[in-house]
Design a protein around this nucleic acid. Sequence first.
DNA 1: CACGTTGTTTGCGCTGGCGCAAACAGTTCC
DNA 2: GGAACTGTTTGCGCCAGCGCAAACAACGTG
Lengths: 241, 241
Amino acid sequence: MAPDAQTFPDALSAMELFHGLPASALETVAVAARVRRLPKDMRIFNQGDPDARAHAVIEGVVRIVQSGSDGAQAILRLVGPGEIFGTVALFADGCYPADAVTVSETLEISWSKSELLDLMARYPLVAINVIRIVGKRLQDVQERVRELATLNAERRVAHAVLRLARQAGHGATDGTAIDFPLRRKDVADIAGTTLHTASRILTAWEKAGLLVTRRQHLTIRQPAQLLRIAEDGADQGGRSR
Amino acid sequence: MAPDAQTFPDALSAMELFHGLPASALETVAVAARVRRLPKDMRIFNQGDPDARAHAVIEGVVRIVQSGSDGAQAILRLVGPGEIFGTVALFADGCYPADAVTVSETLEISWSKSELLDLMARYPLVAINVIRIVGKRLQDVQERVRELATLNAERRVAHAVLRLARQAGHGATDGTAIDFPLRRKDVADIAGTTLHTASRILTAWEKAGLLVTRRQHLTIRQPAQLLRIAEDGADQGGRSR
DNA sequence: CACGTTGTTTGCGCTGGCGCAAACAGTTCC
DNA sequence: GGAACTGTTTGCGCCAGCGCAAACAACGTG
């Protein structure tokens, strides 16, 4: 697990960013990179910081949060292994548009702007990969805009939970578990609601047997039912009324 | 105004997509392009259509709308002259993620996937431009996610109106006018609220003198006050309570 | 083990803004 | 000019879900 020359090429070649590159290219990439092992709850960068770098997660999870002038904040994304983050800032105004904080202990790798530009110039495929990655993310976020604009709180939470499961779900015998600490507040900030409403909804689902929660931990038992709530808005009658 | 060889290079060189390209490259671009003049309310593509092309607006405005399984829809973007749209689909799954409909008569230009890839291969700068454009858009949409998740209806409408003014505002003597047809329903679908709520808010603002509306037309008189509502949530006391 | 910290649940009241419905006002078409 | 259409305003009732507050539960720490 130590960040040595052995584990790197594997981790790098598994990244979508470097998909399709020859092994020799990965060497170049590895040489240019800065790698850090970060403890839990470590701030990697803050909203508005200049001189952005291109980051990626090798192990662990990073939370991307945007805060408003008031305290209110929205979780834009949870970044898992193999995914990049903080990269679009390089090509826009150079300032990070959100905060990045580790959710659990994380192995992070990053490149400076000039290093990334060099890589893209040398391997144009990297640029294509960036476009594909950012494009997919744009589609995701746009879908979320529609959800926030048109769905009620329960359906938004359902979408949030399913998205988390799809992205970070670790299949267990008794369902799909999310294997990093996830607070009620986090679910709320992802779904665009309050801690209280999110808690009530999750509790109701737990009583209906759709999922199980331990402190900061969540396992989905009946994804089909959740999906139905997310899509139809059909509550299965599990909640008291 | 006719789409002839004279007007093209000008329009193309003004596009951010081709920023920094030599004149000779623009010739290549122009040759590969398909250009169409479209009437108002024409559907350019539909959500889910395969075989996406890369589009751009030369004149006019195009509305990008995403619809849910129920009728509810959100306006993701209004595309003005010089802007590209429908392009990220090329690099993702090849299917358009939303509908595109002309808001007014529009001169549209487009390229097929292979043509765009050729252009990017020949002129790597185009790929960089795409990344910058999509990156900026991603930042915009992410900001909107936070707004939808944390702000109340009035502040969301204020942000929507200001965004429209910034993007498509035509400065007149008596304020900033938006010079394409804009219905109350459109404002609502942008701000993530209902036609009724949007109407009430705009009417209140009109009574307070912040803006003037004629049918499908809107002129901002006091952007500073609007900005204050958008930022602080400070209602200027113009609305009766 | 006692204590502080952090996360979760839940009751209660209140309100923003949604939903319905109806009237009204420009526009286009015949 | 009348009729059909499209867009806008507004009144009214209601409820989802926010906000407050308080109790509870799990965890870490000395």
